[in-house]
Design a protein around this nucleic acid. Structure first.
Lengths: 238, 238
DNA sequence: GTCTATAGTGGGATAGAC
DNA sequence: GTCTATCCCACTATAGAC
């Protein structure tokens, strides 16, 4: 319901020179995006509100789109924060997964209003902001580690054939959930929350069933296919 | 390998006046997009190359983005065309589905170069070009009908509980395939084609297995969840 | 209803002085 | 690192020709 966000971007002590300016720009941008939406917030507006020149903003961020990447950062921090307690205490796979996904929805909630806009940006595979791009490897890696944590920290028995790929598969599921969330117009994103509540037990059951004799060949083939076709680590841009 | 495209946009006989201009604009735009990409093609450029004024282009298309919607149209026509023979002759579910998906990849192939750009546009849920928007209902409906055709025309026995939702599910799978295709940098989109070749038998087996006793509850729950959460028909914009 | 010409607005991005 | 000035382009407005 209310925000989980602990992201106060203070701590302005003993900092590399431009770091303060950088933060000032991001803070202002984030605020304006929330107040007026992505499109109506102009670079001029951001610069003015921050008491800087436009050129200066571009000194730190090569494009307006790049300011969006800062959201990923902040959302991820909130996400980890909100998921931490459950990851530290729960041991069952389903519980851990549910906690992380639900925490994800909570972390994103404050930005739902203009989520479509930054989703639009992320959707372009040529964009450095695509979740699959080389440039976003660090943030992707951080996000992935959450799901590694889900898998590694559980006492639930998991098919050893599936286990190595499971974190990445869950991360993709999380991406899918986000895709649904972006399109979810229900109040407070109730439908996405319902999706999490009901999809997690399903996934849990599927993971359990994957060892089943009748399903074994299908599981094997699906996994093999995934390994063949999964996006390879992108080479850094030239 | 080579293009299937039969879309010669001729047939310029006895046509409502503006229809020719409209087509001229689209043809020019498509050509320029292919030659120089979406971003580098300007409205000025399109107008000039077509021998028209900018204002005239805007008379027919409210925005540059709207020109992209014409692609969907053309791709769909090519798609139907390429899929038609198989749909008329094959009777097995897997064969029919494979034909339609493979035809889809072929139909999109000529535009892969800048697919990311028009995908970016479609990704914004607020955009009228989103595949889920009210404004694109006709094109979505046309696309859906292809998959209805796949299901209705098969002699393969399909679980009656699944059958009514299957076309929409396949359409979503097609969307997913497109998402993969957009990110597929392999030459001639080999990986997407491989995905189709290997995913279709998997889907086929899953559809067959869905009746299985052990799986029945999972199938039921998954379907129920899908029905609850699937995007409702969007209300027309105010 | 179709089309031209022209002038103007606003905003993303850049060059180059300081 | 910061600023000012400038460019380019999507898009709008308008006034009028066919």
């Amino acid at each position: 319901m209310d925000t989980v966000s602990p992201v106060t971007t203070a701590a302005t002590q003993n900092e590399p020179r431009g770091e303060q300016t950088r933060r000032l720009i991001v803070d202002t941008a984030v605020r304006l995006f929330q107040e007026q939406g992505y499109d109506k917030t102009t670079m001029r507006g951001i610069a003015q509100a921050a008491g800087l020149s436009v050129g200066n903003a571009y000194y730190y961020f090569p494009s307006k789109d790049h300011l969006v990447q800062e959201f990923y950062e902040r959302i991820h921090i909130d996400h980890r924060f909100a998921a931490a307690p459950a990851l530290a205490t729960k041991t069952e796979f389903a519980e851990r997964l549910h906690a992380v996904l639900a925490a994800g929805v909570d972390a994103m909630a404050p930005y739902h209003g203009f989520a479509g806009k930054f989703f639009r940006i992320a959707a372009d595979p040529a964009s450095p902001l695509s979740p699959f791009s080389a440039e976003s490897t660090p943030s992707r890696e951080r996000s992935l580690s959450l799901f590694r944590d889900v898998v590694d920290g559980t006492t639930t028995k998991i098919d050893p054939e599936l286990k190595p790929d499971l974190p990445e598969l869950l991360w993709l599921a999380h991406l899918g959930m986000t895709l649904y969330w972006v399109h979810d117009r229900s109040p407070n994103q109730t439908k996405t929350r319902l999706l999490v509540d009901r999809a997690v037990p399903l996934i849990d059951r599927l993971v359990a069933l994957s060892k089943l004799r009748v399903l074994r060949p299908v599981t094997r083939e699906a996994l093999a296919l995934y390994r063949t076709l999964r996006p390879s680590t992108p080479s850094p841009s030239p």
